[in-house]
Design a binder for these strands. Structure first.
Lengths: 214, 214
DNA sequence: CGAATGGTTGATTGTGATCAATTCCCGTGG
DNA sequence: CCACGGGAATTGATCACAATCAACCATTCG
């Protein structure tokens, strides 16, 4: 029973604002507050979502109480398409989020939509494989270094903000928050990065980090 | 530098038999001997493949010499489709294999093919996520139990053969061969399975194994 | 200002990696 | 058919790294 369980739903006081138009079928733009659930694993997969702004985690809750984050969705990503009838993962807002709600295309009727969907699926596949690569082996340092480099896609933007908590990172990398903290500290001591605050950091030695992950 | 490096290519003495017909473009059926490479990571992704018989591993080789297996393909699986121009993974025959070589569909020209491709991609995505779930966390026992249960898709066929080596399993689960061996031994001692030979086993307590993975 | 949440740090333990021998298969050739 | 050889697998001893348990800081928010 890990600290992951503490990640409680805050669904009580109506955090989900209604669509920002009177005709939801025309502008299905939704907003979600941090830690709010967009959809749940096992629920009927009626909609797909396109993330406009914010960060979303795709995760799964295990019987023993631990949580596993399988993917972080960034703006532009489409998520929630499934081979079957049910969502395979829960989707939750990490930060405040704006999403577009999309109808699942009927592939038999609209084969053209399949081309787009295909692109989404392939990109999701690449991401899932990259994640598996990260987890597959290697020390905490290798995983965390890979994670940080993946996160900073655009290179020259040297100051970067971590939108997620240590617990999120830990559940994504299959480590504990203590190990995340210590490993970050180690990177700092080695002069590879600088922690401005706990959530803002500057990568000083990109090469060095890259050398770690192999 | 792990024992994975010992996994040497045996590409010297022409193991790849030619297509079994005089007109390869009509019946592109290929055979591969164990450990033979079907395609290599980084190579130009000109073809897709459908596995007819045998077992294929999709893997990646790291700079430090270790190997990571990301997926095992079973008969019926289609593999080798990519979002980009290059293969993201190497594909190697684990056992003797028969594969169909397929042309990459031109999605712009043939949107109907996109529907099929979409199905393949979604199935591959599900597999990749299942793999990430397996790796994400949990003890060696949890990983191995999950692996064995996944492997035995058809339930009542109680005697099952492991087509791959311990090294393959280790590289798939992010563990070492010693740990695989010890964990299997532990399962045997707990009466959960019986090892007829190193490669043939019988699951005695399916429930127990399932209870482990969570 | 005080509570709460998130993050860091320290001490200890446990699990799996590593190093090192054997043993077991299984195919091969005498 | 049996002996042999070599890769695969098991087993043992030790070590290293990350999990766990437990305080302790720092920020934010009411």
């Amino acid at each position: 029973m890990s600290a992951s369980m503490m990640q409680e739903r805050k669904s009580g006081p109506a955090l989900a604002r209604p669509p920002q138009t009177a005709r939801p079928e025309v502008q299905p733009v939704l907003s979600f507050a941090p830690d709010e659930t967009i959809f749940r694993e096992g629920g009927e997969a009626r909609w797909m979502y396109k993330l406009v702004d914010g960060l979303v985690r795709g995760c799964r809750f295990h019987a023993d109480g631990r949580r596993q984050i399988e993917v972080f969705h960034k703006p532009g990503d489409v998520f929630g398409f499934e081979p079957g009838l049910e969502y395979g993962l829960s989707a939750e807002a990490v930060t405040a989020c704006t999403v577009l709600r999309l109808a699942r295309p009927d592939l038999a009727r609209d084969p053209h939509a399949a081309v787009r969907l295909c692109g989404y699926a392939m990109r999701a596949l690449a991401a899932a494989q990259a994640h598996a690569r990260l987890l597959g082996r290697g020390s905490a340092g290798q995983r965390l270094a890979g994670f940080l480099l993946d996160l900073q896609a655009e290179p020259r933007q040297e100051l970067m903000e971590l939108p997620m908590t240590r617990q999120d990172i830990a559940d994504y990398l299959g480590l504990t928050i203590e190990t995340i903290s210590r490993t970050l500290g180690q990177f700092v001591r080695q002069g590879m990065l600088h922690l401005v605050t706990a959530r803002k950091l500057r990568i000083l030695d990109r090469e060095g980090l890259a050398a770690l992950c192999g």
